[in-house]
Design a protein around this nucleic acid. Structure first.
Lengths: 321, 321
DNA sequence: CCAATTATTCTCTAACTGAGTATAATATGA
DNA sequence: TCATATTATACTCAGTTAGAGAATAATTGG
């Protein structure tokens, strides 16, 4: 009954039939005591989220409002991640839901502890992603056999080959090395192979017991994977670790934070060299008497770097072993 | 220009008034005869777009449907860019519009020419972005003086300094070199300084005549800037140029395409070295008698690379001069 | 055949990376 | 007190890569 919008909109326009709900959803990350953690609500199984409302000034401010309402935790740096509109996000209504996801970085507020929200180590959700102490046992012992079985379960040889190749690429098998950025690819592969709890459409082949990692509501774990992947990529070329560090810190603390995010260790002397060469930090003059050993100099980030944040090339060395 | 927006306010069926319209909008790029071009509709002043509808299977397929309906041009590779929900995207209705933008890569169909759509060189919209023949005159002669004036127009010294610093970073002044990826930052800077036609809120200081680049509807030019920036970043580490090339090509053609996108020239021998070292291409055995001179070998992309597209590190050398 | 033009291959140097070693400054405990 | 463990910090070195330029090859057009 209502078409022919004059000028403004072409095709099917003014009708309510195509209206959607827009959800804002946040992956909020902090690193506490060398562990990367994510802000959750409910039983640690959901990310903070809520509808985009008319009185939100922008998507960003709407997101901030929701996170602060649900967790009373203020947000610093945020950046858009991805917009989803999957079929399986529709409830029993006919209406669709669009999810606009964001990545946020903060420092964890150590004082307060609330029943409405919590911080959880992100490797609880992705145990195969932490390679700081070598390849986690779960990879060769559980994931690879299951993925191989899944590949062999394919209909034709081409599909078999394709599945297995994707697995080897994603998990860095034969000759290839582990690429810590492929967090999303790995999760989606496991999802496709029905090895994560969220994938329970068709016949679950009794492998339910070996399903790895803590699951989340709806597609929240996929969104978390997106956020982790983005952050792992980003720390390599933009100085965003800042947002996760206290005002002053030792170089080892900085290194441990990077390692926590990347899920792999870096070569200490090379790390220092790069950080100092790039003038990312400056000494405060003070030192810190840490856990036994020579006291470490304290550093802070240089203001200039923050100013040029949009541009600066902050190559952090992420080497093997 | 308004229609009798029925039920769009508080009582949309099933909704509480927070429903939104979701628009899909596409930056479709091709490179023809060494010029990067973008697919437009209308008077070359709008990008293909349309509402996300209930019968679209996904955001991607909805976008494909709209582009093909409006331009009868099929899309190959597409990737999500960004989701906007600005105030100024609202018409005079109360309802909001969310724009989900995508980047698409194709080859231009040389045969057909239609009145409903067209291809336009993207440097028409961003004349300051093409540095293939050195710094365009418009930068030192028009943009920098205007930006300086804008900086000096600031309220306090801090703001002055901040504005000018952003300008020097974005346009690669004193000591810094031009960073071709900062397309969006530059456009937003010019927008903020009211140097582009789209920024006509407050008093336009008579500089209307010198406003550079062809404007677009609403914020389409900003979305185009986002797409160009993303593409310029991406060609450096992922083999996406493929999508823009014919089945076989010479190495110089490949180089010219990269240069067209990046808006800067590269060193020919180094370019070849990198492309060949990485096994991106393989010779077809044939050669091409080009425009006078030694015939060039023809190449095609290797299948393996396409398979590993998600992972491969395709470093293209983008040097100065 | 000569000049112009483009393709292709090589060379050289500076910079950067990955990895390992050496030295310095503190705490701890025999 | 002094050796030892522990962490911080500095230095070295080989292999690789990046930027730039030179040299050679195969054409076309006079």
């Amino acid at each position: 009954m209502d078409h022919q919008a004059k000028g403004t909109r072409k095709g099917t326009g003014g009708g309510k039939g195509n209206d959607v709900k827009a959800d804002l959803i946040a992956v909020v990350v902090a690193v506490t005591k060398g562990e990367p953690r994510v802000l959750t609500i409910g039983q640690a199984s959901a990310l903070p989220s809520g509808p985009f409302e008319l009185d939100h000034r922008s998507l960003q401010s709407g997101l901030r409002a929701w996170v602060e309402r649900q967790t009373s935790h203020p947000l610093g740096y945020i950046e858009q991640l991805y917009t989803f509109a999957d079929r399986d996000r529709i409830g029993d209504e006919l209406q669709r839901v669009i999810s606009i996801s964001y990545l946020g970085l903060t420092r964890e507020d150590q004082t307060e502890r609330s029943p409405t929200h919590g911080w959880h180590g992100w490797y609880d959700y992705f145990p195969w992603e932490d390679h700081r102490s070598g390849i986690p046992a779960i990879v060769p012992e559980i994931l690879m056999p299951q993925l191989q079985a899944w590949a062999e379960d394919a209909d034709d040889p081409d599909m078999h080959h394709d599945r297995w190749q994707r697995a080897t690429i994603a998990f860095g098998l034969d000759e290839r090395d582990w690429n810590e950025e492929l967090v999303l690819q790995r999760y989606e592969l496991l999802h496709e192979a029905a090895l994560v709890a969220e994938a329970k459409h068709s016949g679950n082949t009794g492998s339910a017991l070996s399903i790895p990692g803590r699951p989340m509501t709806a597609d929240h774990r996929r969104i978390l994977a997106t956020g982790i992947g983005r952050l792992r990529t980003k720390i390599k070329y933009r100085p965003v670790v800042f947002e996760l560090m206290p005002a002053t810190f030792t170089l080892l603390q900085l290194q441990r934070t990077v390692e926590a995010l990347a899920g792999r260790l870096v070569h200490k002397p090379n790390f220092r060299r790069l950080v100092e060469q790039q003038d990312l930090v400056e000494g405060t003059g003070e030192t810190m008497s840490d856990t036994g050993g020579r006291p470490a100099k304290l550093f802070r980030f240089r203001q200039t770097v923050l100013a040029e944040r949009t541009v600066a090339g902050t190559k952090l060395p992420l080497s093997r072993a």
